[in-house]
Amino acid sequence: MALSADTPIQTGIETDVALAARGDASAFERLYRTHVARIHSLTRRMLSSDEADEVTQDIFVRTWQKLSQFRGDSAFTTWLHRLAVNVVIERRRTFAIQRERMAPDPAVLDSLPVAPPRADLTVDFEHAIGQLPPGAREVFLLHDVEGYKHREIAVMLGVATGTSKRQLHRARMLMRKHLNG
């Protein structure tokens, strides 16, 4: 008999996942409330603030539809997160052409004047992430913010591990300039 100290969040989640898989909408609402901040932050950073709400909703709707396929061999949070990344990447691909057209030229970021130090550093840092070239931004967010490994990122994005590493380095070098601003 294995007895473990209660890890509150996980236990609640497991039960709610089981309930939600059986069609319990209020259990699913609890899952939503527990995870929405992380998922919304991911979509907001990977896409844009405008799209984040809609895509977050899509992600949870798809989660609900796919819950029956969740086998429980990974943690639900990991599974959900992976599903979210897939939805986001799919979305980025679908709208890639429009986005490339609208995206600022990477050179613009390099030429941005370094802002004087301010109190709300995080906002500027976040803003700077949004200004990264799309490929660098994806890898930076997935690796440094979300904690995926290059191997995983390579599979998700369909690129070589070396490409993932190069994009990450490029992103970090660009982000250096915003450490103090």
């Binding site: 008999m1 007895l3 473990s4 100290a5 209660d6 236990t11």
Partner: peptide, 15 residues
């Protein structure tokens, strides 16, 4: 090493 106090209020047991 489990906290006895906590164990008495919340626990998860896998059988």
């Amino acid at each position: 090493g489990d906290d006895a106090q906590k164990r008495n209020k919340r626990m998860t047991v896998t059988l």
